[in-house]
Structure formats: C-alpha cells, structure tokens
Amino acid sequence: MSDKKPKNRRDFIFTATAAAGAVGVGAAVWPLVDQMNPDASVKALASTEVDISSVKPGQSITVVWRGKPVFIKRRTKEEIDKARSVSLDQLKHPEKDEDRVKNPEWLVMLGICTHLGCVPLSDKGEYDGWFCPCHGSHYDTSGRIRKGPAPINMEIPEYVFLNESTIKIG
C-alpha cells in the first residue's frame, strides 16, 4: 500500500473533504445547543407592565420579571436624602443615586443579591435599605452595597414609565 504519487491533489481533496465535513458537523451541532436557549414563549414574556398607583410612600412591592423578583420601592423624602447625602468615596461600587433612578421617588431594581443570588430582606440592615440573610450583605436605600461580601450594587433593570401609574420593565 505504498503511495508514491505526488501529494498535492491528494492532499487537496482530503483537506477539502475534511473541512467540508467539519462545517457540516458544526452546523448540525448548533440546533442541539441553541434549543437550550430561552424559547419564543419565554422571550415573549420578557417585559412586564406594573400598576404602581396603589403603592404608598415608604412601601415597596415585589413583582416577577423573567422569573426574578423586582423591587419597586416608593421612597420617602428622608430615604432619598439619605441615599443622596452619601459621598461616593464611601462606596464599594461608586454610583450616584441620581444615576440609579428615573424618578427619585421610585427605585426599581432587581431584588437579587449580587453575591450569590439570594433575595435580600427590605428595611433591614445597618443602612436601612436591604439586608441579605445568606451571607450578610448590607445595602442602602439606593440598593448600593455598603458592607458584606457582595461585589457590586443591586442591578437596575431596563424600565420606562408608560404613564404616572404604570411602569414597563424590560
């Protein structure tokens, strides 16, 4: 089975075949991978509209968006002032309160501790904001991390005020 012929053509046909085969295998694998991504019915639920007309100052409600809790807090004047009076160099993850809200009265954020994904308790902790019971992260009235293992502030989802009483999240 010795093959002493010039190798060019042989190599070309072998390489072309192997390359074409590899492309096909790759194309066949993609559907098998992509089927685990969110499907069309899940994506359709990607935005939620919330009626906030019944929330009184100081109260907060929790709504579900993409299977995750979203805190919608109507903050009192004091709480807003408290959040705005903190100087940025005291913060582990410096962010101005003004950048975290669209309307100072309403704080809308993902109610998930950025440490390992637990849901923090409201009106608890050393900074009167939120406290995560899992590993003791303290958040202030703007949802910023102040103390504990969490690396960053609680996340702000995309949202818009459709009118005075409705927020659309997502």
């Binding site: 993609w30 559907p31 098998l32 992509d34 089927q35 991504n37 069309a40 899940v42």
Partner: peptide
C-alpha cells in the same frame, strides 16, 4: 422539553414544534 403527563404531553409537543429553538427540526 417534553412533559409526560396526559394533560400536558400533547401541548408540550406542540410547544416543541412552535416555540423551542429548532424544536421542529429536532
């Protein structure tokens, strides 16, 4: 994606055919 329950099995197959990415193909 399939659910083995007499109330949901048929609907879960339709879900695969309609909504799951490439579900119809698979």
């Amino acid at each position: 994606h399939y659910i083995a329950d007499t109330k949901l099995a048929f609907a879960s197959v339709e879900h695969i055919m309609r909504d799951v990415n490439y579900g119809w193909l698979i």
